[in-house]
Amino acid sequence: MKSDRLGSIALAAVAFFVVAFLQLPIIVVLLAAISETSYLTIPPKGLTLHWFSVVLNDVDYLAATWTSLWLALLSTLAAAAVGVMAALMIHRKLLPGAQLLSSLFMAPMILPSIVLGVALLHYFAALGIRGSSLGLILAHTVLIVPYVIRASLSGLQSIDGSLTDAARVLGAGPIETFRLVVLPLLKPALVAGGLLAFVTSLDNVPVSIFLLGANQTTLPVKIFASVEQGVDPSVAAASTLLILLTGAALVIAERWTGFHKHV
């Protein structure tokens, strides 16, 4: 049917246009990072890695990157420990209100993160610990735990229940069973959840921006702030570094365990 044919072509066109639209700013950032000029043209007036060296030699940028990394790492580890335990409880329905508790644990995902950010700002200020690193880590942990829980639950559900039964009957206590049987099989799901959690922490602005101490900043917050001062290709370079960091984390995780089904 003629109109169907036309319809098909139109559909494909829209689809590809949308996909291209989605990639656009990323390409632009990469382009800006290697352009010699501080304004962008197509084709670029010259290619250079100059801006990268500016960023990599900038003490402030390095400090911000370092802060982002340890913050993301520590909060992910904390979220993993606490989240897996909670997921175990929910999965095995060990408490009567398991479903209700599960909703509570996932609540940080529903609340707008800016609200959490300002609530914690007030809270830490009242406690006199405004700007503390521990507070920042705990805040990020709360924020990212739902990702760990969701992935862990998915992983736990895919493990055959009779495996833990078998381990118990063979003489393993509850903790041994978890360590020897459940944990190894949970690895792909944990990595998936952990990765998502790590990236969420790495990218966070609405919570970090309220809780950072006077001489502290994270990479996204720094980029956020510096844009107010005008567009500078070194910002593009810093952004590119962030893209590369995220991409690297993804590839490492996928290589280590094929985890895409648990996202």
């Binding site: 078998a166 381990a167 009957v169 003489g171 049987v181």
Partner: peptide
């Protein structure tokens, strides 16, 4: 008594072999 204190053996319908361990390690588990 909890199951791990009963000294009873059990074979499950799905066999429940630990997929991440070798045959040897499975048999050695108990």
């Amino acid at each position: 008594l909890p199951p791990n204190a009963r000294n009873i053996g059990m074979v499950f319908q799905s066999y429940a072999l630990f997929p991440h361990m070798t045959v040897w390690e499975n048999v050695a588990f108990g």
